[in-house]
Nucleic acid binder design. Sequence first.
DNA 1: CGAATGAATGAAAACGATTTCATCCAGCAC
DNA 2: GTGCTGGATGAAATCGTTTTCATTCATTCG
Lengths: 306, 306
Amino acid sequence: MAQITIQDVAQMAGVSPATVSRALHSPHLVSKATRENIERIIRENNYIYNAAAADLSRRKSSVLGVFIPTTGGTVFASTVGAIEEYAYERGFPVMVSNTRYDPEIEAVLLHKCLERRMAGVILTGYCQANEQLILSMAEKGLPCLVAWEILPESVPLSYVGIDNYQAAFEATDYLLGLGHRRVGLIVGPRSGILRARRRYDGYAAALEARGIPCDPALVIERHPTMLNGKEAMSRLLRLPKPPTAVFAASDFMAIGAMAAARERGLRVPEDISLMGFDDIEFTNYTSPPLTTVRVPSWDIVGSQAK
Amino acid sequence: MAQITIQDVAQMAGVSPATVSRALHSPHLVSKATRENIERIIRENNYIYNAAAADLSRRKSSVLGVFIPTTGGTVFASTVGAIEEYAYERGFPVMVSNTRYDPEIEAVLLHKCLERRMAGVILTGYCQANEQLILSMAEKGLPCLVAWEILPESVPLSYVGIDNYQAAFEATDYLLGLGHRRVGLIVGPRSGILRARRRYDGYAAALEARGIPCDPALVIERHPTMLNGKEAMSRLLRLPKPPTAVFAASDFMAIGAMAAARERGLRVPEDISLMGFDDIEFTNYTSPPLTTVRVPSWDIVGSQAK
DNA sequence: CGAATGAATGAAAACGATTTCATCCAGCAC
DNA sequence: GTGCTGGATGAAATCGTTTTCATTCATTCG
């Protein structure tokens, strides 16, 4: 059964296709009688709009691209969830791209966005490897927004995010203020994730500000998963001189870290201090509730997306 | 700057657009020399394929629609994550639709899938309210797959999922086997969520099988969030005759329930037994690790999607 | 009353691919 | 030489909208 087209509708309504199109998108341009007649015919004949044809004709689709680095954290739910909700209300479908922290995959997916002439792209995190590509996309007229990051001035892109450097600095300084001198850091890979590097830098700066040397053995870089957090913590605790406090600077790692401490019979915070950095609800439900850097993850993308 | 089209490429290569199209999609139909020439020209001139035009011409898009009921659980990450990964490898983009457990929103979003002539739709959970619409979509040639659910034979749709009834039966029976006679149930709203009803039915059947009357006061229905789980548990514990065991039959509710028990100074499982039902990694990291019905959530959609 | 205004509509040219038939030709068997 | 076969290619129709100009006609203004 071939689909009914706008032409067919027009014919049945005794008007031109142009009028039907207008009735659909700019109702105020069409007289009330005509519009209602068209609407009735559409309903009765089960006409289904063809989005591809519209996208082609408009040279622009209404689809929004959302990039996330992994589905294994809450970056995922917060980012995609908030954006989807916001976009739905405005009639924009959301297409999800998972880069797996891999610049090459990201490049491929970015290209797909170009092929679809998307309405815009939101990048969670920022991968320098594709800087040129992203800038050229922005120039081609594809609006790009970077979330979860504060970009250096040299990068001419819009962004919304938190100051990861400052947050990590303060978190570390808080631990130091409690009297700790050996503070561990569990963080994402600095080389690939801008966020991770910033947090590392904040941590290092806080140490330096108090004149404490940064012991590389106390810093562990891992992709942010619970399991990695657990393993990283185990490793720290097995050190000859283990840290007395640990800053787990990433979503899920703090939870894994806490489990690792518990497994070794350590109480938090009596035996070891643990500071998280997350945006997730779960930390309210651990025992004890985790001290953490609270991130307004929903609002980052929910309230400011334009 | 107007985009270069397949026509332009054809002209530069001294061939017809048809050949360019073939070089792109059916390379084996084109001689090696021609193909390589075309590829070079595409590269050098930065030609960008137009997906909308292709979708229109083919009367079919390659986009896959994925429906989830909420972004607030892990159904979300597991479902979308696994599907996205699988689809990426096969070149299918994924469009996410969040129904918010609302049939009307679901209907609107389903219609959007029709408008885009999508390659297929995967529905997480199943909402009877839209049964007719979904069936008619399937008839129109839009493949629909229901995940996380086992459908009654009367519904002619493909599905992959677990037997929620059986799982809940066994979970409840396990608690009863421990000697408990007052077993509470925290579950999603039966009216809207098929999964929730099945789990309730399994719970009720297990009680009945042992000749224990089902006390409505022990059953609390809430949308599945941690907070709701916590509140539900608090309410159960404040009953004149509180349950000695609770089956939290939904993703996040068990975690909230555990927190509520802890807040009242109850130890799990010494003072109260708690059984979860989830698919989430968290439960490995709670203290104590939660007993739970393990669901192969990734595999449900990851390995069987076709 | 003539001109100007503006609302409602139509004609027709895009938009950029895909795909079905041909067509052409080289090579090969007989 | 004739007739096939099959690989490589091209011509042209088609997909279903959108949108820019016109056009028409009824008002309104001076």
